[in-house]
Nucleic acid binder design. Structure first.
Lengths: 222, 222
DNA sequence: AGACTTCTTCACAGCTTATTCAAGATAATA
DNA sequence: TATTATCTTGAATAAGCTGTGAAGAAGTCT
């Protein structure tokens, strides 16, 4: 269901965890050190990470911090040490859970599923609103049954909106989260993309609502 | 920041947990048995619950299940038993974490904050007073179930009032905090916005109370 | 390199929202 | 009750924001 990254240097442990996750329908990526982990994080869509602290090259805390900057995925820390200061450090780095070895793989799986539920991760195959439907896996968008072609930015914008329905975003937030800039000053770029997106969505463009001085939001119902 | 319900029958333990949470800025409600807990849940806005399993009248698992049906708040289970079957049962009931006693209050606090962060808890999901309710994430305002449309300034004004109920603000303070000016001299700008806001709030405009010579305040109850 | 697509910038019309002002209403004061 | 200070209100005016089309810049693909 979800893409899970397992970062653990002991091969045996790694395999056991992966086996449990796979059995429950998740897709697993594995890394045996911090560098591997970061590379995988960059190039793959990871929904949750299980992260051992004592790993070669770059330790788990650092990996956790970097991961936190790029995504809000749930992170479960694993470690042999049960020291309080370590746990606190883990939570400070942005971890969601801190599990000490030895642990039961069943309980780990239960935690994983609880966190996925909590992180509003849904294995949604298709997002829809009104007559719009969007399939993330194939990047296809249909309006009233007709496929429409969007450019990459337009797709990302629509996808972002549909993943966060009802929420208001300022132009700056959109530039930040979709474009990835720290934009200084004013830009009409967002407006222009909204315009073309609305146009391509035809009548369904009404789902994208302007809030003067606040930004835009996507409303599922009219 | 968040409203936390602590359900624990041992008075000492309850007080320690509450003290830690309060120190971190959270508002605490406490219950010493399952019935208490459910009553509090019904009548108060709870953002997160810390729930002991072994409590009088109704056990923690049952409280957890009921709570899950009414809200998606994070739930942390506490217990003296570290049995795997118990943990699994906890997660099955919809708990987000299962902590065994004895535990460090610091770590518990870190978990609480991690879960609040994770649950995309925002400084209050919905603010309400009388028949007014306001959702910050979508900038929506309802009066008696009907959505009303506010301009940006009106929204900001109402939001500010509802975030600071009962407090009196002078016009200068409002200009300063909402408009961002250092206003010199007199301005009727605030008055005018108050007027239209009251008007749009219809009968509920009465929540905005004028204090002659002092300014305005927002009263939650009539 | 050339042709095409996509992205960004810009200027301005059209419209919404904010502010000012003056007069009427209300409350405090003596 | 008369007087004065303070609010409320409505209308007029000013300010600010967004939508749009067109054109230039940056990427992509062959």
């Amino acid at each position: 269901m979800a893409n899970i990254l397992i970062v653990e240097d002991e091969e045996n442990m790694r395999n056991i965890i992966a086996a449990y996750m796979k059995k429950s329908g998740h897709i697993c990526y594995t890394a045996e050190d911090g560098v591997d982990a970061l590379m995988l994080l960059k190039s793959n869509p990871v929904d949750l990470m299980i992260l051992d602290i004592m790993i070669p090259h770059i330790d788990g805390f650092s990996v956790c911090k970097v991961a936190r900057e790029m995504s809000s995925m749930p992170i479960i820390m694993l470690t042999a040490r049960a020291e309080e200061s370590d746990k606190l450090k883990g939570y400070e780095c942005g971890a969601d859970d801190y599990t000490t070895k030895p642990f039961s793989p069943k309980v780990l799986l239960a935690k994983v599923n609880a966190l996925l539920r909590r992180s509003s991760f849904e294995p949604r195959e298709v997002l829809s609103a009104g007559k719009i439907s969007l399939t993330p896996s194939s990047h296809k968008v249909f309006v009233d049954g007709e496929e429409i072609t969007l450019t990459h930015k337009e797709y990302e914008l629509l996808y972002f909106f549909m993943m966060n329905p009802g929420r208001v975003f300022t132009r700056e937030q959109l530039l930040d989260r979709i474009w990835g800039y720290d934009f200084e000053g004013i830009s009409r770029t967002v407006d222009t993309h909204i315009k073309t997106l609305r146009h391509k969505l035809n009548g369904e463009g009404k789902h994208i609502v302007t809030l003067i001085r606040s930004g835009y939001k996507f409303e599922v119902k009219v």
